[in-house]
Design a protein around this nucleic acid. Structure first.
Lengths: 275, 275
DNA sequence: GGCCGCTCTTTGGTCTGACAATATGTATTG
DNA sequence: CAATACATATTGTCAGACCAAAGAGCGGCC
């Protein structure tokens, strides 16, 4: 039985290249063909299904055919179909459940998928503390502005609760740091901008572990943190965008300066360290 | 042969729950066990290998054992091993080549992996034009500052080249928009911050298609674009962070205002439209 | 001796068929 | 009628086979 090329999908790398055409010009043949990409059957099937999902031909919640049916329909074996589904599952396009009535149901990638991807990226490239801080300085002030613009009463309530929890954890430094991150996440959540939320959540964990082992959380720093948090939150509640962004910029900026003035060794330590 | 539970990996969901313990209290048994997560063999293996890579026990460039060897070592069948490798490949942790001397070699997820993930996310959730613009307004001004701080001569050269190309494409609107995006990408690239670069690249394509079909690219708008680009670039070259961030903020802000004042229908159109 | 081409071997890519695990539906039985 | 047991559909996994790709090594030719 023919193996590869019998796939009845539009392969995309099949375009009738007519190898027998123009066989004379043997020299001066300067890269008529770009680097030919070879696609695996599973990748082709996954791509095809993904495109159907993205273009709305497969609605969210719709069930895909069973693995065996997909195999018959596409002319592929079950293992190839399964690998395709594994790809889609990993990318967040289907969720698969075993058992009767199970199968693959269509969904769209959500924040969590982006977050794990970003998390892998950040964890993989250590050394990125500078990039993390710079990114925070980009995202958080803008988020404060958007939070002031879009915050709901639920957002405010959540922020107030976290603020109280932060004050209560004043003497428990690890807890203080944890709640602190949560507070910052709550600000970004109040933007109701999934893109910013996903990005901030992804770097939050990394920021936490980077700051955790540091001792630059003196009483004064923590007291100042509580104070500026209060003022930022007031601005957000009042809907004062300019004040919110200004105060948040100062807040994360002072943190960044604190990190920047640390002796390199301690940074070494924290960044090498797990991240 | 035993099937599932014989996996010699630390399953993580195996913890000796001792089903026979305390069989008397039949009522009032309030959730002793959280929701038990069931892991597939391929997921376990993929997770184990991923962790080894992230913790440096498997260096970048190191070859993994062959699929058959991995199967023997883990006690799994080859199909399970292959599905695990498909996951890792998809996440950017290995690259696989067929043929003799081929196999799986370890690598770390790079920008491209993050970008595809973000791209899927953005394409999946249409309706996100507001989020895209807000994110641009967060990222680009900050990027301008960092570009002014970290730009190299190569960055400047690239930006100058794109500026010239943008001027040359003044009358070719699609080309103008394309080069325009490239110019903005070049600014972010000059930050040398992979996180910001990945994020911007991911939204760039979406921004382009969202703005493409709009007619709010009048002569005046394009002329103004060229002018402000010049001024931003001057600030970046001069290393004037404050000017760079201020001008860039005005630039993307005016764009955002332009979009915001459009009649909703046209936004409808562009956002529904493919993205 | 050095280069070209052939074959050989290793490796991933795919198919097939079988059985296990799982979850739902349905009949059976007290 | 409810609880239980069985039937069934579907994913999860394994084993073995063969195909396809691509470097390794060998041999022949100049």
């Amino acid at each position: 039985m023919v193996k590869c090329t019998r796939i009845p999908l539009e392969t995309g790398a099949h375009e009738e290249t007519s190898l027998s055409a123009d066989p004379k010009s043997d020299e001066a043949r300067a890269s008529v063909t770009g680097p030919i990409e070879v696609f695996k059957a599973s990748e082709l099937l996954a791509g095809r299904l993904r495109e159907q999902i993205l273009q709305g031909q497969l609605q969210e919640g719709a069930p895909l055919p069973t693995e065996r049916d997909l195999g018959h329909q596409s002319g592929l074996g079950r293992s190839s179909v399964r690998e395709a589904l594994r790809i889609l599952e990993n990318q967040g396009f289907v969720s698969i459940r075993p058992g009767r009535g199970g199968g693959s149901i269509v969904q769209l990638p959500d924040r969590a998928d982006v977050e794990t991807s970003l998390e892998h990226f950040i964890r993989g490239r250590r050394f990125r503390l500078r990039a993390l801080i710079e990114t925070r300085e980009a995202i958080e002030p803008a988020s404060a502005r958007l939070a002031a613009r879009h915050r709901t009463s639920a957002d405010i309530e959540s922020l107030e609760r976290l603020s109280a929890a932060l004050g209560a954890a004043f003497d428990n430094i690890p807890e203080f740091l944890r709640v602190n991150i949560e507070w910052h996440l709550a600000v970004v959540t109040a933007t109701h901008n999934d893109l910013l939320i996903a990005f901030m959540r992804a770097i939050a964990q990394a920021v936490l572990t980077a700051t955790d082992l540091e001792d630059f959380n003196s009483d004064e720093v923590r007291t100042a943190t509580l104070k500026i948090h209060r003022r930022i939150l007031d601005a957000i509640i009042a809907g004062d965008e300019e004040a919110a962004v200004r105060r948040m910029r100062r807040h994360v900026g002072s943190y960044a300066r604190l990190v920047a003035t640390r002796p390199p060794e301690s940074l070494e330590k924290s960044t090498k360290m797990e991240l």
